[in-house]
Design a protein around this nucleic acid. Structure first.
Lengths: 241, 241, 241, 241
DNA sequence: AATGAATGAGCCTTCATTCAT
DNA sequence: GATGAATGAAGGCTCATTCAT
């Protein structure tokens, strides 16, 4: 009975994803995974060979085609500022709102921090497409003569800002006494987008700066919504204009 | 003999730091730690009660006063741009060049990613002083009326950019085919400092942007050294001026 | 379809014989047997009840009528010395040249060394006929008044010499540095036959002995071929003469 | 406490020897071994690393110096016939009367039949000394011009006769209905010694043979005691005479 | 009739821990 | 105080076996 077979297999993957994400590869036990999946302890060996085989399968499953994380669906014709914001928001929501399997993002971070043999699959299925998308967007936001190295650095700065907020939670809580709970995906996306665009000279700087690079007639409400900003072609014109 | 006692204890802490940093809490074994420390296998329980007690002690030891990581020694009277760059460079070099016990930074990252009860001590000894320093610097770079939440967001953007490069390595290697090896501490510090200052309107934007927020007479060599930039009070004036 | 049924059953027996002979009962796994037989993993239980049932069936199959090891086909009218040599040669070649299923002899040895419930069947099908044949031959070589116990002892001495060379291999290699590779079936049969006949006073002693029991006009080439010896009725007369 | 340590270790070796000898390496479980030795299940790992380490240690222990099987103590000046009988009797009694650890002989046979990495140690400690002793004895019983290959064949015939009686038991019982119980070590030694000496022309042939190689005035009681035979220098003169 | 899915007992091993010096 | 011996719990994994088609 292939239906039941696949169902059991799926339950194992789900349970394993959760446990691996929670405790890490080493601390996770196949006994607990099987218990959660209501499967026999020998099922892991039967379906995946061994614990490591299960782990690799879980990482693959997390980003499998049919259930994979969608790439930000940006109209290619949208202005690059909008597309950048879409990208940032999607990355953030992947890790905050945890759409799909709630353990996916946690598992991903673990795998990247301590890569195993499953890392290559993860990079191919998840990281590379997003990296290429981001570089395409940056291609429109940066001058054409920008070196590849510089484009990488900018990309790292963007992704770094996004991913930091995943690890930030527990520590930041200790520092800021709950302040960070105000930061939902939308607000973080606003900030990172504006911070980045300002760094690229595509939006007004953060804060109210003085001196040569600043402006005096800045709107105070800028940080409340990058969407409206980005929707305004006059203030952040695309290179295509 | 208390001297020998303390010496053994210290060797245990050193060995444990290395092993915990390399393999994580779970995968680290007391046997290996004691073997490396040339101590008896019962020594851990004798000196620290149990494995977890050793771990907590290691985290504390890593940031103990006498050997703790130095805060960036910035002259309080230096311009905030310089102080920011000093801060960024120090954070980067902590994780890249791994001064002091070579395992300290790795252990720190691990602990923050998966906080245990030792996390609080880590935050108190390491994170909080740096957070306060950064906020002090930002206090001079941002307009005084900036909300505390916004200041936090900026701080997160800065630290996020810095810490990302620790986890970036293995994955980025897969993507960029060795490109990232070009990025040493100095170059990364240059980039992050300039990116941040530009976002805050304290430096020229990245790339050669056009339009309203850009400039046309930009020096092409800017990215090659933020020091010279920061050393120029005219171009990045402190608020104190 | 009974033809396919029997065919699968036969393939299982063949595969099981090989694996059991190679690895022993315990170390043999049903999985490997079924894999080799290209049968389902449940086939063993289906056809033979359980692992032990399969083993017993294999032992029986190994000596089944249609494929059983042939008894030495000695003319009953041939001289007993010749018949003895035929017997010895056949026993040796059974274990050395491994005619028939190549695993049969190995499995037999295993079963005799550690008898299971399959041993009785093996004795009935294989051992007893040969034992009776040997005793019949010895009946002609030994004086009629020889006690049954003595006849058994002689039989044991003959079979012991033959079977020893199966187990001898690995150990003897260590001792004699490849010397034993010189000993093919023919040479061993020559030696054992002559050794035995000499012990029974039916051939000249081994070596060139001196004194009362020896002879002085011995042919030096005796050991090169017992066949010629046995083919000479004058020198090894049967009791019938 | 080293006394207790060694005592536990010894108990483990004894228990393991018994279980390995009874069931073979694979079927033996360290659980049973530890249970019999009244030791914890982790003791095997502690003392010997793993199951295989225990096995190798057991084989070594079985033939360790202080407890090793004694070589037959033959006066070098005794006639070689006597020394041969001493050798045969000692080999037989090793396997029948099982002096020392009652499992030693069984374990040895197992190891030789299916050699593991412990086999080399066994050969060095046990087999080689006996092989050399036997060849030394044969050197006196065989003419000096006998080839080395022939000497090996004779040695194999002797050892084959002896060892066969270990495996013979279960099977022979089935054939001879308890007859073989009459054969104690002494009687078997008598037979094998005489059979061999007769084959070498150093004693009268077995049975009451007729014809060219036999004698007519043979004593009927010969087989009842080889000792008296061997003690009679006239009938089985040594080469030294 | 014949199969693939699924099971649970039990294997060896490792580990942190404790005990008795 | 400080150590090596010894422990028991638990881990991953394998296996013969059974069940539901």
């Amino acid at each position: 009975m292939t239906a039941k077979h696949d169902e059991t297999r799926r339950r194992l993957l789900e349970a394993a994803g959760e446990v691996f994400a929670d405790k890490g590869y080493r601390a996770a036990t196949i006994r607990e995974i099987c218990r959660r999946a209501k499967a026999n302890i020998a099922a892991v060996n039967y379906y995946f060979g061994d614990k490591q085989g299960l782990y690799v399968a879980v990482v693959g499953y997390a980003h499998g085609k049919e259930e994979g994380l969608p790439l930000p669906e940006c109209d290619s014709i949208a202005p690059p500022e909008d597309r950048l914001r879409g990208f940032i928001e999607q990355v953030l929501s992947t890790h905050f709102e945890e759409k799909g399997p709630p353990w996916r993002a946690r598992l991903m971070i673990r795998e990247m921090a301590e890569p195993t043999e499953a890392c290559a699959a993860l990079v191919d299925a998840y990281v590379r497409p997003r990296a290429e998308l981001l570089h395409e967007i940056l291609g429109e936001l940066l001058p054409p003569e920008t070196s590849e190295a510089d484009r990488h650095l900018v990309a790292f700065s963007i992704v770094g800002q996004c991913l930091f907020h995943r690890a930030r939670n527990p520590v930041a809580e200790m520092l800021s006494n709950g302040l960070s709970r105000q930061f939902d995906v939308k607000r973080l996306a606003d900030h990172i987008t504006r911070f980045t665009l300002a760094a690229l000279g595509r939006a007004e700087p953060i804060g109210r700066s003085v001196g040569r690079f600043g402006e005096s007639d800045r709107r105070a409400t800028f940080s409340s919504g990058a969407v409206s900003l980005l929707g305004n072609p006059r203030r952040a014109p695309t290179r295509r204009e």
